[in-house]
Structures are given as structure tokens and as C-alpha cells.
Design a protein around this nucleic acid. Sequence first.
DNA 1: TAGGCCATCTGGTCCT
DNA 2: AGGACCAGATGGCCTA
Length: 330
Amino acid sequence: MTKTYAKPKEMSELVSSQSWMDEALSSQDEMKEEDSKQAPYGMMAGLNEEHDSIEEEEEEEDGEKPKRRGPKKKKMTKARLERFRARRVKANARERTRMHGLNDALDNLRRVMPCYSKTQKLSKIETLRLARNYIWALSEVLETGQTPEGKGFVEMLCKGLSQPTSNLVAGCLQLGPQSLFLEKHEEKSPVCDSAIPSHTFNYQSPGLPSPPYGNMETHLLHLKPPTFKSLVDPSFGSHHPDCTTPPYEGPLTPPLSISGNFSLKQDGSPDLDKSYTFMAHYPSMSLAGAHGHTSHFQSTVPRYELPIDMSYESYPHHVVGPQLNAIFNE
DNA sequence: TAGGCCATCTGGTCCT
DNA sequence: AGGACCAGATGGCCTA
């Protein structure tokens, strides 16, 4: 899955010509070469041809370079250099792993979104935007206790999304931009790739793959206890008979831990008795279904208005994160 | 070809 | 000291 990147040609020329490279950096160059042997992304490989002498004096005052403040750097002894190099290699590996974990979590999030597609992956930012809208839309459904009117639901989901993503969502939910009404279809499994022929849908966005995703009603299954269970019990979804999507590989990151306090049992599985701290926000919601598929949701959920400018342009820099935090952590 | 998206490296900061 | 997290920088890939 990891892409491999070719080593950029210009890099070595660029770096080796830079007079500001102090000896610490030159030592890093050596380290990078070593790192690049392990990492697929070998951008720094081969940079150090001109920085072999690690003991050379660090400050070559050539007049052009601004004087550095602060304490003079310690000379890089060979031992120090070795330690530094090893540390950097390890740090790079950790950082790669960390980012892979982050991406895995994002993939998990994509899969529980109402328009999961292996062929057309949502970008990271669009995934987060859609997730936010989805939470918002579902909270509205919980509040009203009614199946949402199709157009409104899609509009909620699409707020602030880019046009291509909006098209994708509309396509997934079988709602074209012109005909935004809920059309009855026989119920199919949610989030099932390639299970439904594309001609079933009344809207296809140009350039989109055949929408294999399901219809509006199926996505509302996310509200029903079995699917709710599937979110917390990885073994559930992977054996769902209607779903042709490959089984879910790993346990989900606790998907509903709104406040971030998700308890795990000793074996690592979610502790449903303790975990759902969002019950504090949804005090009368019965979560029995998380265990037994027979729960009911009472619709006395407090309403959370999201006083956020949801225009596409407003997303990147604004209050989305802090305000959501404030809402969910109050 | 420009722009969007992405993976990776890197140095800084904070925490244990 | 070392790990986690973060943001900036960089360059590759892809598409309109």
C-alpha cells in the first residue's frame, strides 16, 4: 500500500551546494543515507558525498552566513554522530508508523461513512468533513426520531463538501442534484461495494465509478442496533451475509467515543458497560442493543446546534475543531 | 502545466 | 534520554 518514491535527482545537488549546512546537518545527511536504505522514500539518499569529514570545523565564517545566536554547538564526535544518526533513523521509522496508524484510522472512518468506495477514496480532509456532517445528521435523526426526508439529509451531509464529494454522496444515496427525493428501493446492505448494479441509481455523477453503495434507507441502518453493534464488534460486520465488502480487518478505533474516554476490557475489546461516555450527552438513550440487538432509541436527545459557518471556504482554518470539542466535551 | 493530494523527512516541543 | 506529537518543507503522482 505504501507508495515508493523515486529519489529526487535535484536534491543532492541542492543540498550539497548550500553553505548553511553545518556539520550537524552534514552528519544528518550521512544518517539519511542509512535511513533511506530502510525507508521506501529515499529522498535523501546519497546526499553526503561532500560531507564525509565529520570532524571538520563547524563554523566557516564566510561573511554571508548570519551569525547564529545561543550556545555554540558541541562538536560532533564520531560517537555523538553515531547516536544522533541512530536516533534519527529510529525517529523516522516511528514517524512513518505513526502516520500509517493515522491513515489506517482514517480508512476505518471512511468505511463507516455513508459513501464508502474502494475505487474512489475520499481525501483526508473530505473524510473528516463528511464525518462531521454525518454525526450532525445522525444527531438530528436521533432528536426527531424520524426517518429524515431525503433531500434534507443529503443536504446536511454535503454541507461544506466540495462539489465532487457532494456528487459522490448524492450518488451513493441515490439522489441526483435535480431529483432530490427519496426513492424507495428494496433494502440492500449498507456499505457494500459492487453489490448493486449501477443502473439501479437515478443519478450518476460524471466521472464517478458505478455507485455500488446502497440507498438512503440502508444508510439509516447505521442507526439500528445491529449495525451499531457492528461498529463496536469487529466480528459482526465481517460476517454479515449481505455484505460483499471484504471483511473488516481489524478492530475499529472506538468509533463512538465522543469524549475520547473509551474503556477497553483486559482482552482489548471495548467495554460496553463503561465505554459510552456520550451517554452523559444522550442521557435517555438505551444502549442495550449494543449487546443484544433489541434496543430502542428514545428521541429525547438534546439538540446540539452547530453554530458553524459550514461553507467550504470556511473549513480549513476556522473553529470546527474547537467548537466540536466544546460541544462534545461540555 | 498548475493545483490538489499524499508520503516522508525533519527539527522543535512536551511529557514520562 | 527517548518517545509522541506536531507543523513545515519537499517532491512525486494524478488529473483537469
